[in-house]
Design a binder for these strands. Structure first.
Length: 571
DNA sequence: GCCGTTTTCGGCCCGACTGTTTTCAGTCG
């Protein structure tokens, strides 16, 4: 058993205990234990109970459970809980507005064990009859169920990548001579992905057999000579397609481009006397193959520069490729810093030193420590006094770990758009990220005015996760995106592309619009632990999909240049 | 359930909002 698998069971124990309304601190202990296990750098199944107990957050009981899971694949305690409460009820927890108490009530009172049960109960009007729920709650649940159906079968980019990478590594090991590449939405870096599409160039039936034989396969959906697809654990659908080597580029192109891109490319081919399909680019008059072995050849023959996969959405990239004016897209290596991170002083898992050290290892030159402000009480948010004391701590460690530090804050934007900390406190800090963490239900006008007021505050440097969305979970709050972008441009406030894998907020479309209107973007991790710097890559992918160049992104700049552009608004 | 101890028990992450109440329970961040 690897760490993530052990962590999953611990987390499920925590969720089940929560539905049972057990001691909240016990629940937290399991949840924390799961985090510790998931983030531990070494495989924990190699440790004995005594070794496990030396890890902070793991005590006598958790050490025993981890040992048991590592040895047998499960824990008796977990099995007992599952016998009491079907684990499918935990799916209900993911619905916004439905928490552990509601799940417990739904199960006990109405015997609801799954999303499907809940759907039926809502339709039959049985929910509103429950004590403590009424018409509004019913409407909320109905909306959540509808949203969920819309998201069915989709997965976060980062998680899809992880699943696909494991599968591709397995296939490459089985068939080292075959070119095996993921294509489709994953290659384009879409924020969520449906299927995992994999091309195998030069592979044969033994590779297909290996694919069908892959450990995570739950069901074979189709099995043909050149194309097979399976359902993987976790609800992923994966397809493998065998391609002749001479068609590799054509297939890569065909199965990567979004439909509008492929249509535009096909039209262009016809206009130039060719036809384009997954096998190659052919001359119309005699069907001779003119390109197909590599993507560059296809684009070049069509008079186009090679188009980076992230841009193949049919959003003007063909025209730009024809005019040789595709942007030099930002890359991970261009990033010199991270302007949104947390520490143990609020709800982070690691202290200033550990964060700085990890940032250096990730190749960063600077980071801003931006812990929460007091409105986020649950995160132990900082009031003015603590914020200033923390800033002093941060500054005292500046450059100590080979990384420059900025003493910042992630300051809550209150319901009326006022900032959570006094101006003189904000003025004493190096960097202010302003974010919404409450009152998501405000109407469009209220929320727009709220954000505009925050942007007008002269101490605000960056608007954090500007739309508040959680991918596959929560829609963005209602507000006038264009008005906020215009205001950000006017007041020189940068907009964040938050790298949390379920945020990627701003998204590609809005970030591109912002750049076009003269707004600077920032790619930040919003790290709550030292392990989070790796997810910068997902922010970079989003930025690339937004056509951003290095100069459009604030944190590609050297430290001094970045700093001087921050402070220009201050009175 | 973990931790720390002044060691075997008490503290641990709180406050606002929403919807359902009509004095509060549940959810969220």
């Amino acid at each position: 058993m690897d760490n993530p698998a052990i962590a999953r069971i611990l987390r499920e124990i925590a969720d089940l205990l929560e539905v049972k309304s057990e001691n909240p601190f016990k629940i937290r202990a399991y949840r924390n234990g799961a985090d510790v296990v998931a983030n531990h750098p070494h495989g924990l199944s190699a440790l004995d109970a005594a070794g496990l107990r030396e890890i902070p957050g793991i005590g006598k009981d958790l050490a025993a459970r981890i040992r048991e899971i590592a040895d047998s694949g499960d824990a008796e305690y977990h099995r007992e809980l599952v016998a009491e409460l079907p684990p499918t009820v935990l799916d209900l927890l993911h619905l916004p507005g439905v928490g552990p108490k509601t799940v417990g009530t739904l199960y006990r009172e109405l015997g609801i064990r799954s999303i499907e049960d809940l759907d039926a109960a809502v339709t039959e009007g049985r929910i509103r009859a429950l004590r403590g729920t009424g018409v509004k709650k019913e409407g909320q649940i109905l909306k959540a169920l509808t949203e969920r159906k819309r998201h069915a079968g989709r997965h976060l980019l980062a998680e899809t990548h992880e699943t696909a990478t494991a599968l591709v590594a397995y296939l490459r090991e089985r068939s080292p001579a075959t070119g095996i590449e993921p294509v489709g939405s994953l290659r384009r870096g879409c924020e969520t992905c449906g299927d995992i599409d994999i091309l195998a160039c030069g592979g044969d039936q033994t590779l297909v057999d290996a694919f069908l034989d892959y450990g995570a396969v739950e069901r074979v959906l189709a099995h043909g000579d050149t194309r097979s697809s399976v359902l993987l654990g976790g609800g992923y659908q994966a397809g493998l397609r065998l391609v002749a080597p001479e068609s590799r580029g054509a297939a890569m192109q065909y199965f990567t481009g979004a439909t509008p891109h492929n249509i535009a490319l096909g039209d262009r081919a016809v206009g130039l006397g060719f036809t384009l399909n997954e096998h190659g680019l052919h001359r119309l008059e005699d069907h001779a193959v003119v390109a197909g072995a590599d993507e560059e050849g296809i684009y070049e023959t069509l008079g186009l520069a090679w188009v980076p996969p992230e841009l193949r959405e049919g959003r003007g990239e063909i025209e730009a490729a024809a005019a040789r004016s595709l942007p030099r897209l930002v890359e991970r290596q261009d990033l010199r810093g991270d302007l949104h991170t947390h520490t143990t002083v609020t709800d982070g898992k690691d202290d200033i030193a550990a964060m700085a050290e990890s940032a250096r290892e990730a190749g960063l030159e600077y980071i801003a420590i931006t812990d929460h402000s007091k409105a986020l009480a649950m995160a132990n948010g900082l009031d003015e006094r603590r914020a200033l004391a923390h800033a002093q701590q941060v500054r005292s460690r500046d450059a100590e770990h080979g990384v420059r530090l900025l003493a910042g804050i992630e300051c809550d934007i209150r319901l009326d758009g006022a900032l959570d900390l006094a101006d003189d406190c904000l003025a004493a800090l190096d960097l202010v990220v302003a974010s919404v963490h409450s009152g998501f239900g405000q109407d469009r006008q209220q929320m727009t005015e709220r954000l505009l007021r925050a942007i007008e505050n002269p101490f605000v440097d960056i608007l954090g996760h500007p739309t508040g969305r959680r991918l596959l979970k929560r829609e963005p709050y209602a507000f006038d995106v264009e008005a906020v972008i215009e205001a950000a441009a006017r007041h020189h406030v940068a907009l964040e592309i938050n790298c949390q894998v379920d945020r990627l907020d701003l998204n590609d479309v809005d970030a591109r619009l912002a750049r076009d209107r003269g707004v600077l973007l920032v790619i930040s991790t919003d790290a709550h632990s030292r392990h989070a710097f790796g997810r910068l890559r997902w922010g970079v992918v989003t930025a690339r999909r937004a056509w951003l160049r290095p100069e459009d992104v604030l944190n590609t700049r050297p430290f001094d240049e970045m700093r001087s552009s921050l402070r220009r608004r201050r009175p």
